[in-house]
Amino acid sequence: MDYYTTLRGSVEYIEKNLKDQIKLDDLAQKAKLSKYHYHRLFHKIVGESVYRYITKRRMAKAAEDLTQTAQPIIDIALNYQYASQESFSRAFMRIYGLTPGKYRKICGGNTSNKVIDLSSYFNRNKITNMAA
Rank of each mutant, 00 (worst) to 15 (best):
residue 23 K to N: 10
residue 64 E to G: 05
residue 72 P to A: 02
residue 94 R to W: 02
residue 81 Q to H: 06
residue 94 R to N: 04
residue 37 H to F: 11
residue 39 H to V: 07
residue 99 T to I: 09
residue 100 P to C: 04
residue 56 K to A: 06
residue 20 D to R: 12
residue 106 I to T: 11
residue 18 L to S: 05
residue 86 E to T: 14
residue 46 V to L: 01
residue 114 K to Q: 14
residue 78 L to H: 11
residue 62 A to P: 05
residue 14 I to N: 02
residue 23 K to Y: 11
residue 117 D to K: 07
residue 51 Y to P: 03
residue 30 K to D: 08
residue 129 N to F: 10
residue 84 S to L: 09
residue 49 S to N: 01
residue 26 D to Y: 05
residue 106 I to H: 10
residue 76 I to Y: 04
residue 32 K to G: 05
residue 42 F to G: 00
residue 91 A to S: 09
residue 67 T to E: 11
residue 105 K to M: 14
residue 99 T to G: 06
residue 101 G to K: 15
residue 113 N to S: 08
residue 58 R to L: 03
residue 79 N to D: 12
residue 67 T to N: 09
residue 75 D to T: 05
residue 1 M to S: 05
residue 93 M to Q: 12
residue 37 H to C: 03
residue 61 K to S: 13
residue 96 Y to L: 07
residue 69 T to K: 08
residue 108 G to S: 13
residue 88 F to I: 00
residue 117 D to V: 01
residue 52 R to Y: 01
residue 64 E to S: 15
residue 32 K to C: 12
residue 17 N to V: 01
residue 116 I to K: 14
residue 46 V to A: 00
residue 75 D to M: 03
residue 116 I to T: 13
residue 91 A to N: 07
residue 30 K to M: 09
residue 131 A to C: 13
residue 99 T to M: 10
residue 117 D to N: 05
residue 66 L to A: 00
residue 91 A to I: 08
residue 47 G to C: 03
residue 75 D to C: 10
residue 33 L to D: 00
residue 18 L to F: 00
residue 15 E to L: 08
residue 131 A to L: 15
residue 40 R to G: 00
residue 129 N to C: 07
residue 43 H to G: 00
residue 32 K to V: 06
residue 23 K to T: 09
residue 95 I to C: 07
residue 12 E to F: 01
residue 56 K to E: 10
residue 105 K to F: 11
residue 37 H to E: 04
residue 7 L to D: 06
residue 111 T to F: 13
residue 92 F to C: 04
residue 81 Q to E: 04
residue 41 L to R: 05
residue 102 K to D: 14
residue 86 E to H: 10
residue 103 Y to T: 10
residue 33 L to R: 01
residue 71 Q to F: 08
residue 23 K to Q: 12
residue 96 Y to H: 03
residue 115 V to W: 02
residue 13 Y to N: 05
residue 60 A to V: 15
residue 2 D to K: 07
residue 8 R to W: 13
residue 47 G to K: 08
residue 97 G to W: 07
residue 9 G to H: 06
residue 64 E to M: 13
residue 30 K to Y: 02
residue 68 Q to A: 07
residue 41 L to D: 06
residue 130 M to G: 08
residue 75 D to Q: 14
residue 12 E to I: 03
residue 105 K to Y: 08
residue 96 Y to F: 14
residue 117 D to F: 02
residue 61 K to C: 13
residue 89 S to K: 14
residue 68 Q to K: 04
residue 11 V to R: 00
residue 12 E to H: 06
residue 75 D to S: 10
residue 50 V to S: 09
residue 20 D to L: 11
